[in-house]
Write a protein that binds this DNA or RNA. Structure first.
Lengths: 220, 220
DNA sequence: CCATCTGTGGCACTCGGTGTCATAGATGGG
DNA sequence: CCCATCTATGACACCGAGTGCCACAGATGG
């Protein structure tokens, strides 16, 4: 089932109140105010994606549900794929900062292990939505593929830290290999989490990271 | 610069000789003979991709260069992305078989290390083309993304072996984590290889795999 | 009232990918 | 030699993601 509405049909917003001269919503900035927000758009999108499936949902559908035009959708998100990633980039900056602020006394591997667990620690209230979001990403081929590009930024953060701490170039084999390896076991941890209904993410992730830290040979 | 030719314009083949009744090219099978081959198509495609860039090349361009119709292109390859992977799947089956045939005396990690090095050992005559192919894959965002789906099959082979050897389920955390980790360091190895002009792949890969095998802590 | 600024969305276009169908070209058999 | 049959080709029409362009909406301060 596809959107019946043709490309340029009339969308309809929730008719937000828009009295003249400042609803003091604007920060004093000139220009028309955005009709929606990235977060609001994401909310609508995730609902439809879960309901109909990612592939079966068109950008038209999402835009219509959010009451905006298709063209406008692409001003909030560069692609349909990008909608599902939420605050990832901002969140990643937090991890970068945390790593940078780590005491040099803490071993590299330990620091990474902690940082990664922190990065993946969400308020309990968000557990369910986090789980649903990750299920979408990890089980939709198009999103799996796209995720590589997001993961690359994550790996860059890890590699940067390893490079700084071991006096190597960020592009060198060791930092990159470590970043790849940590990414890998973390994703494997996520898959394990998703495969088991009531499971807790953090212990699983810790176990996955432990496989690396303790050495694969000793873990098998 | 894009292909100027509209969707359905006339392509032109090399006018292959086609005498009636068997050029004994056919294996006795009925039906029209294919006008080209996947390998031939790949050859044309890689040339254009390297010349103009992957993104800037349209499927029309490739089809035209190969003297076939656009529609026919998609009968040889399911997508533009798939063209660059050559014999990957067949090659992967070789690795699966090699792993399956490994003596139980060889430790899991050692067996994997050997299998992965074998998998990535190419005849010297192909070194250059292999390098160019991998550069294309690892440096083109669209192909980076798509590669995830190929790597998934690779990981499945590794995980299957680990699972069989350690008596675990293939989907369990350990086999999946090991597969992910090995994939990661291997890709890091490839990136290192590509970053250094005259470098040899196998020693670099071996070094990358060694980081995992010896334990990351001891390697930093 | 107006100049200015930002956001919106309609439109047309490109390109990857797919379903359908007529046709080309090979086969073996009568 | 013609024909039934089989496979491959390619034209065509269509869908959906993504983009450039541009007129217009709606907020601002002067």
């Amino acid at each position: 089932m596809r959107s019946a509405r043709p490309r340029g049909a009339p969308p309809r917003g929730e008719a937000a109140p828009a009295g003249r001269r400042t609803d003091n919503v604007t920060g004093g900035r000139a220009g028309r105010r955005p009709v929606t927000s990235a977060a609001e758009l994401e909310r609508h999108a995730l609902l439809i994606f879960e309901e109909r499936g990612f592939e079966a949902t068109t950008v038209d559908d999402v835009a219509a549900a959010a009451g905006i035009g298709r063209r406008t959708f692409f001003r909030y998100y560069a692609s349909k794929n990008d909608v599902v990633w939420g605050e990832f980039d901002a969140h990643l900056e937090t991890m970068r900062a945390a790593l940078a602020a780590t005491s040099p006394d803490v071993p590299v591997i330990t620091a990474l292990r902690r940082a990664i667990l922190d990065f993946n620690t969400y308020p309990v209230a968000e557990t369910d939505s986090h789980r649903r979001r990750m299920a979408l990403i990890l089980r939709t081929p198009a999103l799996q593929a796209h995720s590589t590009l997001r993961y690359a930024r994550w790996r860059a953060v890890v590699a940067e830290f390893v490079a700084a701490r071991t006096g190597r170039d960020e592009g060198a084999l060791e930092p990159q290999a470590v970043a790849w390896a940590f990414l890998g076991v973390a994703v494997a941890g996520y898959e394990e989490w998703l495969a088991h209904a009531g499971a807790e993410l953090i212990p699983i992730l810790d176990r996955a990271l432990g496989l690396l830290v303790d050495g694969l040979d000793r873990s098998l």
